[in-house]
Design a protein around this nucleic acid. Structure first.
Lengths: 230, 230
DNA sequence: CGTCCGTTTGAGCCCCGTCAATGTATGTGG
DNA sequence: CCACATACATTGACGGGGCTCAAACGGACG
């Protein structure tokens, strides 16, 4: 079951937290984890789970969500390749982690991973760096959700998704596929499905974007879009 | 100027990140930092600063804010005693950090602190733990801001402030002083001053809270308030 | 072709943002 | 001590943006 992971060919081997390790150390870490593939909608772990696993995302996309008693989903974060999920220090999971698209993961038991951090300080530092980045992303999302009107929220969301979709941070793509449904977008921005949809069509009629089917987006005027989001 | 810090009498010595260090290590870290006191409204560092400092909060409260070009403040996070602020890995600060009340800080140069993390792995792990907690808090705030109506947002805000105000996480206070103005609360929740004010008065007339002047709050019915916020 | 799921579009209403006035606490100078 | 200024909070009136309810549309898959 736990065959050593083929880190040598891992597409995120130089961006994930484990990239900070030496070959020898990574090899050792590799023996602790295993690969897993999730289909869209599959749950990695749910709020309240004691299962205590954590994982690095290799490909695909995940969402971290909470559900109110009314059953309304609120998306708290998106996870992109090389991202890390899991509560290393809490006794149990406090949110749900769900695949947005087919996703490949490198899964570890939390206990093993914490021990690895203690043995390999570089891993802890890399994770701290990643955590800081997550924190910044999270605050950017707060920034987005507290904006005044729906127009600014959707515009800002599209810009941030464009950044996330582009592999390199310097060269940002203008055309991409949204991994989220309208409802999920609404759940991130504190809007309803209908409002998101209306804003999208209005952005299109205003010539700021173009749409390729329900999920494809082309940013025709990124600068004006960015300005709108500010 | 850089007298060794009197860690021995520090009120957060067993909760802050540096609590993970041995006496000897902490002593060494203490030689790198210095104390500083901020008055309400004073800025520790601002977005775009290259100053590169970081700090542990000893007493008081800070806010992390971003300002839109319209000049509207959006509060992204509150920092409580034993909290840590500063961008260890970014070339410059991306948000403003401002004192909410008179605050005492333990300030370090980022460069020194990063070096300390490399020398003392336990410090890195403690910071990772703290960062995970900040991330959770941040996501809780997202959870709050994406709620449907103003009532739920304000109720949830009051509950979370009650938790933050109580020193111990198990025994939570029901009476406390808000360190924030109505405008600042609005800036956190994506609401206006007037809406916050109206919701507060309505919560009072409904018998859920009582107010002691503009800032003092007494939670008369925490359970109903919590239910309302869910 | 029919079903399912997600998106789009429409109509109506209500919550909350805007604008404006008043109330209250604190500090400052005459 | 009082008049005044400043800053913040409260309250009211009003209009518009977004939520609710509802129906039509479109693609994927049997």
């Amino acid at each position: 079951m736990n065959d050593p992971l083929p880190c040598a060919t891992c597409p995120v081997r130089d961006r994930a937290a484990c990239a900070a390790l030496s070959d020898h150390e990574r090899n050792e870490l590799g023996h602790l984890g295993h690969h897993r593939t999730l289909q869209r909608g599959e749950i990695l772990f749910a709020s309240g789970d004691r299962s205590s696993i954590c994982a690095t995302l290799i490909s695909g996309a995940l969402k971290i969500s909470s559900f109110g008693e009314d059953g309304i989903e609120r998306i708290l974060s998106l996870i992109h390749p090389a991202g890390f999920v899991g509560e290393l220090f809490a006794p149990m999971a406090r949110h749900d982690v769900i695949a947005l698209t087919e996703s490949r993961l490198c899964v570890f038991s939390t206990k093993d991973y914490v021990r690895a951090i203690e043995r390999f300080p570089a891993l802890g530092r890399a994770l701290l760096r990643r955590s800081s980045e997550d924190l910044f992303e999270s605050r950017s999302l707060i920034d987005l959700t507290t904006r005044r009107n729906a127009r600014q929220k959707v515009a800002g969301f599209l810009v941030s998704m464009a950044h996330a979709a582009s592999a390199s941070p310097c060269r940002t793509t203008n055309v991409f596929e949204l991994p989220l449904t309208r409802g999920e977008i609404g759940g991130m921005l504190g809007l309803t499905i209908e409002t998101v949809s209306r804003q999208m069509t209005q952005l299109e009629t205003d010539g700021l974007i173009e749409r390729w089917g329900p999920r494809g987006v082309l940013l025709k005027d990124s600068s004006r879009l960015t300005a709108l989001a500010a």
